[in-house]
């Protein structure tokens, strides 16, 4: 393994994401979305301040958590699936494979680049919301609590997106046809975000017992006790949350590493590289 090679591929991938039209579309949608939510819906949150131990400023991220999560999920899935598949379709993967590189360096470089760029995008999306909330509410009750919890949320979201990237990289590597890869990714995405509501009783029980999909794992990290109190409720001490969420954080890391192992395996066995 060559770290220099991984770094160069990762940097290249990072710039590809930054100038990708999808990045601009996503940021524009989130800018409009957050502006409307903060100025309209979240005004109701002011009434919540009368409830003991709820910091409205932090709780707003919970109320508006669905959209940044969903939109960054779509983006991670798309970028993950096209990272190898698009290069294969354009023929540029042949150029890359003719260089003195290990195959696993290519996949690891792409994963690192995509993962870091998603972290940057998540930080940008959440910062955008923080600035709007600062304008509206003036600031959190406790700066330390806020920084701890929002950093934990950002890292959890990043972990989820890294899992999505590693999984979709696998789909893009194994399948030759980019459209087929995309169709499988959209079907998976539909299950995660739309169709699981329809599966009441059947796979919900399975998912609750075995949290193995990215979104379910994120749900368990944020709300490890499946109770009314979670990461965004200041009534639950931060270290108590961290203690409860740790098994799910470790499980997420294991899932990401397992997926990466399969990615490396798939790219090594791929005969068109």
């Amino acid at each position: 393994m060559s770290f220099i090679a991984i770094y160069h591929i990762a940097r290249n991938e990072f710039y590809r994401v930054l100038v990708h039209p999808l990045t601009m579309v996503i940021v524009a949608i989130m800018l409009i979305n957050t502006f409307i939510m903060v100025n309209g819906e979240l005004l109701d949150l002011k009434t919540l301040s009368i409830i003991e131990n709820v910091d409205v400023f932090i709780h707003a991220y919970y109320i508006n958590g669905y959209d940044p999560n969903f939109i960054s999920y779509i983006m991670a899935a798309f970028l993950g699936v096209t990272a190898i598949a698009e290069e294969r379709a354009k023929g540029t993967l042949n150029v890359l494979s003719s260089k003195p590189l290990y195959r696993k360096d290519i996949i690891l470089g792409k994963f690192v680049g995509l993962s870091v760029s998603m972290l940057v995008i998540v930080i940008a999306l959440l910062s955008m919301m923080t600035f709007m909330l600062l304008y509206l509410y003036g600031g959190p009750q406790s700066l330390t609590e806020f920084l701890l919890r929002i950093t934990a949320y950002t890292m959890s979201l990043w972990l989820e997106l890294s899992f999505v990237i590693a999984f979709t990289l696998l789909i893009g590597t194994v399948l030759r046809n980019i459209l087929m890869s995309m169709a499988i990714t959209v079907t998976f995405l539909s299950f995660e975000w739309f169709w699981r509501n329809a599966s009441t009783g059947l796979i919900e029980t399975f998912i609750t017992r075995f949290p193995i999909t990215p979104r379910t794992l994120l749900g368990w990290i944020i709300n490890p006790n499946n109770s009314l109190e979670n990461l965004f409720y200041t009534s639950m001490p931060f270290y108590s949350w961290l203690n409860d969420a740790m098994p799910y954080i470790v499980l997420s890391l294991v899932m990401v590493l397992t997926m990466l192992y399969f990615d490396c395996l798939a790219v090594r066995r791929s005969d068109d590289l």
Binding site: I29, N33, I36, M37, L42, D67, E86, M182, V186
Partner: peptide
């Protein structure tokens, strides 16, 4: 592939407008 993901985003926006309509 980009067209397919943009179509999914259009669906998301369409559903999300219901949530954004009130605010």
């Amino acid at each position: 592939a980009f067209a397919m993901v943009m179509s999914t985003i259009v669906l998301y926006v369409s559903i999300n407008i219901e949530n954004l309509a009130r605010p």
